[in-house]
Design a protein around this nucleic acid. Structure first.
Length: 125
DNA sequence: AACTTGACTTCAA
DNA sequence: ATTGAAGCCAAGT
């Protein structure tokens, strides 16, 4: 009876695969896209237990603050950093400049859209 | 059933 | 810019 979380995991994999090479996003953003807004912590679990790590760009998911979430002295940390750098993402002290490398997900785009609509409405008032 | 554990996030010092 | 506390929630003990 874990079909709920199974679905969650499918959604996570689906969206993580949509992150373009050279861009990153956060655990929280993926959780939201997956339809489970408060499950940021579970995104990491899903990635860690993914059946096909090969086809999953897990390295493009980092903390909302732009930092690699693994412990800095771990092998995972080192691997993620090199994988990111290998696709052109600059990592300074374990941190990525989100201003520059964060993926504009469809969700955020639509948020901008409504924001613009608000502006237009105000303009024509 | 109670308590702990994270590849998290947000907010307030 | 850092740090820490509080909130989060399924899984594992």
């Amino acid at each position: 009876m874990t079909s709920r979380m199974d679905h969650f995991r499918q959604q996570v994999y689906y969206w993580v695969k949509k992150i373009p090479k050279g861009k990153v996003t956060s655990y929280g953003a993926i959780a939201k896209l997956a339809g489970f807004p408060r499950h940021a912590r579970h995104v990491s679990k899903a990635l860690g237990s993914a059946p096909d790590r090969k086809s999953l760009p897990w390295q493009r998911v980092i903390g909302a603050d732009g930092k690699i979430a693994f412990h800095p002295d771990s092998d995972h940390y080192a691997l993620q950093q090199t994988l990111l750098q290998k696709e052109g993402i600059r990592v300074i002290n374990g941190k990525v400049d989100m201003k520059r490398f964060s993926w504009e997900s469809p969700l955020q785009q639509s948020e901008h859209q409504t924001e613009n609509n608000m502006r237009a409405e105000e303009f024509f008032r």
